[in-house]
Measured scan of single mutants.
Amino acid sequence: QVALSRTQVCGILREELFQGDAFHQSDTHIFIIMGASGDLAKKKIYPTIWWLFRDGLLPENTFIVGYARSRLTVADIRKQSEPFFKATPEEKLKLEDFFARNSYVAGQYDDAASYQRLNSHMNALHLGSQANRLFYLALPPTVYEAVTKNIHESCMSQIGWNRIIVEKPFGRDLQSSDRLSNHISSLFREDQIYRIDHYLGKEMVQNLMVLRFANRIFGPIWNRDNIACVILTFKEPFGTEGRGGYFDEFGIIRDVMQNHLLQMLCLVAMEKPASTNSDDVRDEKVKVLKCISEVQANNVVLGQYVGNPDGEGEATKGYLDDPTVPRGSTTATFAAVVLYVENERWDGVPFILRCGKALNERKAEVRLQFHDVAGDIFHQQCKRNELVIRVQPNEAVYTKMMTKKPGMFFNPEESELDLTYGNRYKNVKLPDAYERLILDVFCGSQMHFVRSDELREAWRIFTPLLHQIELEKPKPIPYIYGSRGPTEADELMKRVGFQYEGTYKWVNPHKL
């Protein structure tokens, strides 16, 4: 086992960053958080920038500027975001240094004079007029057009580079997404736009490419001749908990499936790229999406959770019991969808996408189930092999396979070949997804960000279904809070070829 401390991990990262040409360590950078008073800024962006600063992973002359409508001070920003920093008493001095680099400007999102004030403020910072500028839009999409237009007109660096990070949702359907994309691309070049999907920053999602293309053993079996089906799962054990009003506007397909799960599907299904260059990788992902037809209604199961009468606390409440959810809402909190990649490698292999709230566990994984062994000599005792990439929690890679049961006879039983990170790298604290992705933006690497043509294809696949749901308002199937979801989803999976045995229990190697 390799035991690495946080300091050692960050030392390795620093070495990698400083050796590259793309990370300008000594240049002045300004990180501007648009929507600095909001939840995302408070819980994710400010803490992430602090962790990067604490670990010495930001360029040395980096300033952080918050911008929002609320009249706040840096002290206010500190008060609301610091509880999420997880700072230790030993880091007190470092924390003071961090907040000394912070400033805040209040202004409207659609007022040109406010942006001119913001620009004057940035120019007044040390070497601010020639600094590289990175704008993070932690804002609702309704203000994107006004904000990007004003940034472009008043706040661009004339000497350094300018980059803009856009948070999902990128529209509600193909038409609104196209409108937003066309607007942003009329102001910024594609190499300046970073559409963030934080799932692409997760260690195991990034590991998929290495697993596939750096190991000879997987190449020959990664196709329709050997793989019976692919299941991509995202499960949350909690409901909307008072935030249903926002969720109800989008629903589970827009929230998770059309982005996170579809991105994971691309990494499983794509061909080997010409290189690890950002556009070479994204070219292959677009090719996969172009091979997927629009979702067919007979390959869809929609569910909505109801309270568990035997549960406790939140578990007793259904989705419609959330006071922020519109009365009688038919918005799905669970969806199972089957897609097919219609190309030579994957023809006929079902890709089953499942996601839901208020389920029995927290889990995100990719599961490849292989065909049955031909010419069975073990009297149907063999179960199908599976390769599982567990994204969260407890990152893991393992192969479910058959071995001989101890004893006199040739009785096979299920076991696993474990390729888990935790076994080799004991207690290594890896940077989280937002840390990686923000560092990628500083480096100018777009590999783990969504390109406009990729986004367009993703919406093309799901828009007809979303429009049909909005028009017909089908009643989702009720499922109990804390269950596996509607049984109809299991029946759909069985119908397209997935075999669920229920006889195997994964042993978490992190707890051995």
Rank of each mutant, 00 (worst) to 15 (best):
I253D: 05
E470M: 08
T324H: 07
F370N: 02
S275V: 05
Q381N: 12
E294V: 11
F351N: 01
I438P: 01
Q263V: 01
G422M: 14
I377D: 08
A489L: 06
K494L: 12
Y479D: 02
P412Y: 09
V268T: 11
T276G: 12
I389P: 02
R362G: 09
I469A: 10
V496S: 14
E414K: 04
R254A: 08
I477W: 10
M402D: 05
M257P: 06
A396N: 05
Y319M: 00
R254W: 01
L320N: 10
L419D: 01
R327H: 12
Q499Y: 12
D432E: 11
E395Y: 03
K357W: 04
T316I: 13
V325G: 04
R495V: 10
F370C: 06
Y421G: 00
K404T: 05
K400D: 03
I469H: 10
V388H: 01
E344G: 09
E344M: 07
N298A: 13
F498H: 12
F498G: 07
T316Q: 15
T420H: 10
T463S: 09
S415H: 04
F409E: 14
N423L: 13
H371T: 11
L471H: 15
A336K: 06
L359T: 12
L289G: 05
L455A: 05
R282M: 00
Q304C: 06
E435I: 08
L320K: 12
V441I: 07
L289Q: 05
R495G: 12
N427T: 12
Y425N: 07
E501M: 10
G303P: 01
Y421H: 04
G497Y: 06
L430H: 08
K473P: 11
L265F: 11
Y479A: 03
V301L: 08
L439Q: 06
E284I: 07
K383T: 15
D255Q: 02
K473L: 10
L437W: 00
V349P: 03
S293L: 07
D310Y: 14
L387W: 04
Y434F: 04
F409M: 13
R424Q: 05
E416K: 02
N343L: 05
P323W: 11
G497C: 07
Y340K: 12
R460I: 05
T399L: 10
D372W: 06
Q380E: 14
E395V: 05
R451S: 01
V388W: 03
L465F: 14
A336N: 14
E414Q: 14
C382W: 10
G318M: 05
R424K: 14
R254P: 05
G313M: 12
N308R: 14
V288H: 00
R390S: 12
M493N: 11
D418H: 01
R367T: 02
A336P: 02
G444W: 01
V338T: 15
R282D: 01
V306S: 14
E491C: 10
T463H: 02
A274G: 13
G497M: 05
F351R: 01
Q468F: 12
A269W: 01
E454W: 03
Y398K: 01
A374Q: 13
P412C: 10
A297I: 13
F351A: 02
E414M: 14
D440T: 04
E472H: 13
A364S: 11
V391L: 06
V388Y: 02
V286A: 08
N423H: 12
T399Q: 07
E413K: 11
A315C: 11
A458T: 00
L419C: 13
M264F: 05
Y479G: 03
M401G: 00
M447L: 11
R451K: 03
Q499M: 14
E416M: 02
R282C: 01
R460D: 05
P486E: 01
N298G: 13
N411K: 08
V306Y: 14
F378L: 10
K404M: 05
T399P: 01
V295Y: 10
P464T: 09
E314V: 11
R367K: 01
G307F: 05
F410R: 09
V428K: 15
V341N: 02
R390Q: 12
M401V: 13
F449V: 03
S278R: 07
L430Q: 08
V338W: 06
V300G: 09
R424E: 03
T316A: 13
K383Q: 15
S445E: 12
L439E: 08
V295F: 08
V349M: 06
D432M: 07
N423T: 14
E414R: 07
C266S: 13
V507A: 14
D283P: 01
D310I: 09
N394E: 14
P350H: 04
D490A: 07
Y398S: 03
G444N: 08
H379W: 09
R384M: 04
E457D: 08
D283C: 04
T399Y: 14
P323N: 14
N394I: 06
Y479W: 03
E344N: 08
D310T: 12
L471Y: 12
H260W: 03
L368W: 04
M401K: 01
V268C: 11
L359K: 00
V441P: 07
I469L: 13
D376Q: 10
Y340I: 08
R456W: 07
Y481W: 10
D440A: 06
D347Y: 07
